[in-house]
């Protein structure tokens, strides 16, 4: 790919960098406890939590496993577990 003059770039390429490889612990959600309040979606520094059809989804391509979602979940529905790689 030719260089873009002035060290400029269009959006979209950050996703080339799969930060999920940094992860040691991964979040697991207990949907029995989850109230879909959206706290985890809002605060995730990686924009890697979303909700679809009443389920909370973690994008493990990008989740760094920081655990802020688990700690801030008002219903304690998220736990961080050691990931087998």
């Amino acid at each position: 790919m030719a260089l873009r003059i002035g060290c400029a770039a269009e959006p979209g390429r950050a996703q080339n960098n799969k930060t999920g490889s940094w992860r040691v612990f991964m979040p697991v959600v207990d949907m029995e406890k989850c109230t879909l309040c959206g706290t985890c979606i809002l605060i995730c520094p990686e924009t890697s939590v979303s909700e679809k059809d009443g389920n909370i989804l973690f994008d493990l391509d990008f989740c760094k496993g920081c655990g802020v979602c688990a700690r801030e979940c008002p219903g304690d529905a998220i736990t961080m577990i050691q990931e087998e790689k």
């Binding site: 002035g6 060290c7 400029a8 770039a9 269009e10 959006p11």
Partner: peptide, 9 residues
């Protein structure tokens, strides 16, 4: 037409 300018190399 968003563009990032002056990124670091």
């Amino acid at each position: 037409a968003p563009l990032s300018m002056g990124m670091y190399a």
